[in-house]
Nucleic acid binder design. Structure first.
Lengths: 112, 112
DNA sequence: CTGGATCCTTGGCGATACTG
DNA sequence: CAGTATCGCCAAGGATCCAG
């Protein structure tokens, strides 16, 4: 069950949070925007501090929300590929603005 | 202690998350961007589902990060005012893009 | 290789009471 | 009014094992 933001004051931010607030979702999306298609193991490599379990959960939620597409190759061993869905691409401005800010003010936290 | 996103792969998104990932921070910022100045009790009224304790913590963290300014009037009873700092205003594109997406895709989650 | 199921620990967070 | 302090619960999340 994913966390719910029950906002009764009609704050539009809440809708966005529903989708990207997961602890690692925006980072996952960032990488997927950059590389278009990534396998599970590749994502794991990019987020080494995130456990497999959490990564799988976050991916599952993103897929539930139709933000990403999951493609399973029934080879042996199995292979999966994740990519941003058409709907997911609408989030690009959000992720991009976060990326820009994070780049501009990189020093703020690395210097701490 | 605030949660730490220890990303060693140099993902700029992480910097942004450090600042706005708190459970209610982006919503707080959204309201502060809209109203410029808000008292503690006014923020409470806008986020009725957030406990006073959590609101105070989120505000304290935002102040620590120099995102918001806190002004205390030593009257009786005490009165405080919160506003976005100069540095905090650099986050406007991020909050704004979240607001836009949330508005555009409002129906996605309200219809569920 | 890509997960799911299970167990177990931790700390996030609510409830309540207290203070200047 | 605007918080802080203390207690306690429960769910988020880690570790490990299992499976197709």
């Amino acid at each position: 069950m994913k966390e719910l933001y029950n906002c009764d004051v009609g704050c539009p931010i809440q809708n966005t949070l529903q989708v990207i607030s997961g602890k690692w979702k925006s980072v996952i999306l960032y990488h997927l925007f950059e590389f278009d298609v990534l396998r599970f193991s590749e994502l794991q490599a990019k987020l080494p501090y995130v456990t497999k379990r959490m990564l799988a959960r976050q991916l599952a939620e993103l897929e539930e929300d139709n933000i990403i597409n999951k493609k399973i190759y029934a080879t042996i061993p199995v292979k999966t590929e994740y990519s941003i869905s058409k709907f997911g691409k609408t989030l690009q401005p959000v992720i991009k603005s976060m990326e820009i800010w994070g780049t501009d003010y990189n020093d703020v936290y690395t210097s701490k």
